[in-house]
């Protein structure tokens, strides 16, 4: 009992978790203020949120399953039964668009996060240690960056086979070099600061310095880069789907829908038109949002 009393007497030190949550909360508020002050970002966010809502509530706002085929209603235009008509297998286009939003909105952020993990593991040590480690990592990354991204995707996916997992791998590998370069440049700048020297002096481990001192202080540019990259990822997931390198057929995927509907455009324009407009609006929404945030954050600097 006495110990409990003594803790109430002194102001309690916040735990590490509480500190982290407080930091996260402050970061989110900062981001929210940034978004709110840019009309471009607000418009972009509204478009993206609309698609996020469609993705989350897909089962409640569609009358049909995206996979249910009906051979009696093939290639029909919009009706009260099928809001956007049906495709060449009699599947409901609106249901496929709504569930397709789930596909692209989950794969996009996941692949960007994987790309960031890869980029951080390469960029932090390269910028922190410099020397030979840096030299080797940068040579390999230069080689990867000289390689046209689309070709990299094509080769990776045609080699590994088309699946959600491989799309994530391809986009992560394609994005990692750019992120690693950014992280390296930021690390090279931040490692000369006093608080890094202080951490070294008190004997912190290199790993802990990189993750606890350097990484949090790179967050501004990294968040902007992350937002931009989610737009690119959505762009490329759609493109891969269109090239026939996306998700395997029955899965509702916008790029794949465009490819399937494209050759049947003369019979029924609705499947291809809906999927094309869906991907265009989502990618533009993501771009407007990221661009607004970027411009606003540059104004602060």
């Amino acid at each position: 009992m006495t110990t409990a009393d003594s803790t109430t007497d002194r102001p309690r030190m916040p735990s590490r978790l509480e500190l982290a949550l407080a930091g996260l909360w402050a970061g989110l508020r900062e981001l929210a203020e940034l978004v709110w002050s840019s009309p471009t970002a607000v418009v972009g966010l509204a478009i993206v949120l609309a698609w996020v809502l469609v993705a989350i509530f897909a089962p409640f706002i569609t009358a049909h399953s995206p996979l249910e085929q009906d051979y009696l209603t093939i290639n029909k235009g919009p009706s009260t039964e099928h809001l956007l008509g049906t495709d060449h297998l009699g599947r409901d286009v609106w249901a496929r668009v709504a569930y397709g939003a789930r596909t692209i909105l989950s794969l996009g952020p996941i692949s960007v996060l994987v790309a960031f993990l890869l980029g951080l593991t390469l960029g932090l040590p390269a910028g922190y240690y410099r020397g030979r480690v840096d030299e080797i990592i940068m040579r390999v990354l230069d080689a990867l960056m000289a390689f046209p991204t689309i070709l990299l995707y094509m080769i990776i996916i045609s080699a590994l086979g088309a699946s959600a997992f491989n799309v994530v791998i391809a986009i992560a590998v394609g994005g990692a070099p750019g992120i690693a370069r950014l992280v390296r440049a930021l690390t090279m700048d931040i490692r000369t600061r006093e608080y890094v020297a202080a951490a070294k002096l008190r004997g912190d481990h290199d790993f802990s310095i990189m993750v606890r001192e350097i990484l949090p202080n790179c967050r501004g540019p990294l968040i902007v880069d992350l937002l931009l990259r989610i737009g690119y990822a959505a762009f490329y997931i759609g493109t891969l789907g269109f090239l026939g390198l996306g998700l395997p057929p029955p899965t509702p995927d916008w790029g794949g829908m465009v490819q399937e509907g494209y050759s049947r455009m003369l019979a029924n324009v609705w499947p291809v038109l809906s999927a094309t407009l869906a991907i265009v609006t989502l990618v533009i929404g993501l771009n407007l949002f990221a661009d607004g945030v970027r411009e606003e954050s540059m104004r602060y600097q």
Partner: peptide, 24 residues
Amino acid sequence: VGGLVTAGSPDFATGILLIMVFAL
């Protein structure tokens, strides 16, 4: 904003929209 829209739209989507308008 126009530039953002044309630069941001995936090429295949732009191409298909153009085909719809001019060819179809």
